[in-house]
Design a protein around this nucleic acid. Structure first.
Length: 588
RNA sequence: GCCCAAAUAGUUUAGUGGUAAAACAAGCCCUUGGUAAGGGCUAGAGUGUGGGUCCGAUUCCCACUUUGGGCUCCA
């Protein structure tokens, strides 16, 4: 980290102290927890005696600015645990931290029985710093939001009130940041999904259950066809499974024990327990397992785009990013251990081809198990190490930057996850390649090898988009709703200049439709300016304007306008269609 | 699930303790206009659902549903 970033961080950290100072001054009796720096600002967690709301923000901000002007210093002092306990005897959260320092369980605020304290004005806090030297150096602050947060991030603990704030050295930088936030909100897939009529939610159907309109469905299917094309070239075969199953399938797979709270359960009239499928792998194993497999038949690559259902907590749901019915472009490769590298690399190739078609940059995360929490996983530490080493080798061979994330693995195996961000910078996992050496054990999946022996196989779970819902949400925000031609639900809007040219325009529109172009004819009695505006707001890539000039030509013609306003001039319909087809072919 | 906030016409929003206003969209009429909003008229909500307080509730209170921002979770 460079010096400038360190300075900014100290400033924001000092702003967090200033917030706590202001809050404890305004609301005596408020207990303080912790207040770290985050991207673009800071937060501080409080236990208020009486609830505060965002309406109190201006008052708090005013107090902060007032205190800031007093130009107090941030001074550090090391005290003994005993002294610290005396100083913070009325602050239960601080006392808890001091006790942990005493026990040697944490070193972030002190060490060896000594505690670091920063005092600023009349406010003291456990803190190792660093801080800026004077409160006047704190930049421009704006309180942004109020949120509940569990003490120490544990849902069994008390719910504290977290106040988020932004802090920048100058007002210009703060305004620029707030403007960026506003711009990001304009790309919000929930907003654009409504405006462009791609998907809807119904209170009657329920939360987390999106309904896809004709336009949205066009996009889903085109994306899915693209993935299928890439898979077909690499030897995948489509399979189809039912959406419910007996609970015994998940008892065998281990999902019932681990995820039964997240399963939508069904009891039949005869009293048998079924569940909506929350994943597809156990079903797919049964397709693999129904025949004895020769090593010559390996690998078997099954793919299926299908919905899975998960009873997510309502508070976790969000637009298309987090839903209860997830369309996975799922695939399972059943292969021999010796085939792992080739198969994983092949999937990675698909991921690369697919995402580069959209100009997406993905971050790579190697999701590993947490050796200190083996009860969360199936299988032995040896199996895990073996599987993880295989993935590490593949990642290294591809010479891409990746991070390792302990504890992020699936319960049956390590993963290579591909991560991207939404318009507000939140991280989402999209594609995934998961190596599974456990499920084959549980379902006794094997092939007969060259020696005529039964050989345990492995499974590779992979999804390219991950969830079509989530991928679509990211894509909508990536393009701000202006999809490339090949993905646009409506590719051409045919706009007659007046009623007189509707017949001619209809011929043009019919010809476009006949050639497989998604075209729409605007017959409203509006001015051409209005029709252009409407089509532009709908982000339709091409407009074909039809009037006297076009109708006079010997063959079908249209004047082309692009959605960015560029004039494509008068064109013969045939050659226009050919140009479009070429672009569509190239995923432009 | 937890914390905070919100819910008014298809959409975006205004407003009020005495049953609600507008713009866009829609329908009709006039206009037949050449590259981002031509004009007029009409219809459309009883204010998310259910309770409570009140002479009277869309407005105040409670619960639920849904949505947003977080927390926790995310095979």
């Amino acid at each position: 980290m460079n010096n400038k970033n360190k300075e900014l961080e100290s400033m924001r950290h000092s702003a967090a102290h200033l917030l706590a100072y202001a809050v404890t001054t305004l609301y005596p009796g408020t207990k303080v927890a912790i207040g770290p720096v985050v991207e673009n600002g800071f937060y501080y967690d409080f236990a208020f005696e009486n609830p505060v709301t965002t309406k109190d923000f201006s008052r708090i901000e005013q107090k902060m600015n007032e205190l800031k002007k007093k130009d107090f210093a941030f001074t550090q002092k090391w005290v003994s645990v005993k002294e610290a306990k005396e100083l913070f005897k009325d602050e239960p959260y601080k006392m808890e931290i001091i006790t942990e320092i005493e026990k040697g369980e944490r070193e972030d605020f002190g060490h060896k029985g000594e505690v670091s304290i920063y005092t600023s004005g009349e406010f003291s806090d456990l803190c190792k710093g660093p801080h800026i030297s004077s409160s006047k150096q704190i930049g421009v602050i704006k309180l942004l939001s109020l949120a509940g947060a569990y003490w120490k991030g544990n849902e069994k603990n008390a719910m504290l009130t977290r106040i988020y704030g932004a802090a920048f050295p100058t007002k210009e930088e703060l305004d620029a940041y707030l403007w960026r936030l506003e711009e990001a909100k304009k790309r919000d897939h929930k907003k654009l999904g409504k405006e462009l009529d791609l998907f809807v939610f119904s209170e009657l159907v329920g939360s987390g259950l999106p309904l896809w309109t004709p336009k949205g469905t066009v996009i889903r299917e085109l994306l899915n066809d693209f993935v299928w094309k890439l898979r077909r070239e690499r030897g995948y075969q489509k399979v189809t499974i039912p959406h419910i199953t007996k609970k015994e399938l998940y008892e065998t797979s281990g999902h019932w024990a681990k995820f039964q709270n997240e399963l939508f359960k069904i009891t039949t009239r005869e009293g048998h327990e079924f569940a909506m499928k929350p994943m597809n792998c156990p079903h797919h194993t049964q397709i693999f397992a129904h025949l004895p497999r020769s090593y010559k038949d390996m690998p078997q690559r099954y793919t299926e785009t299908t919905m899975v259902y998960r009873d997510e907590q309502t508070g976790e749901l969000s637009g298309l990013s987090r839903v209860r019915c997830i369309t996975q472009d799922d695939a399972h490769v059943f292969c021999r251990k010796s085939q792992i590298t080739a198969e994983c690399s092949s999937v990675w190739d698909i991921v690369d081809s697919f995402y580069s078609a959209f100009g997406f940059k993905l971050e790579v995360r190697l999701s590993l198990h947490d050796p200190d929490n083996m009860k969360a996983y199936l299988g032995t530490p040896e199996l895990w190490t073996e599987a993880e080493d295989a993935l590490k080798t593949i990642a290294k061979n591809r010479k891409v930057a990746y991070v390792e994330a302990k504890g992020e693995a699936a319960f049956y195996g390590p993963k290579i996850d591909f991560i991207t961000h939404d318009s507000l910078g939140r991280e989402w996992q999209v594609a995934t390649i998961q190596l599974d050496v456990n499920m084959p054990d549980r379902f006794d999946l094997s092939c007969i090898n060259e020696q005529g022996e039964k050989e345990r196989i492995v499974m590779i779970h992979c999804a390219i988009m991950g969830s079509i819902e989530r991928f679509t949400s990211i894509l909508i925000e990536h393009y701000a709703g202006a999809f490339p031609l090949w993905l646009s639900p409506v590719q051409v809007a045919v706009l007659p200049i007046s009623d007189k040219y509707i017949d001619y325009a209809k011929k043009v529109n019919d010809e476009l439709l006949a050639k497989g172009i998604r075209s729409e004819l605007d017959t409203t009695a509006e001015s051409i300016g209005k029709k252009i505006r409407t089509a532009t707001l709908q982000k339709i890539p091409f407009m074909g304007i039809i009037g006297q000039k076009e109708a006079e030509q010997s063959s079908l013609c249209l004047s082309v306008r692009k959605r960015d306003g560029k004039d494509g001039g008068l064109q013969m319909l045939d050659s226009f269609i050919n140009t479009l087809k070429q672009s569509i072919e190239n995923h432009e």
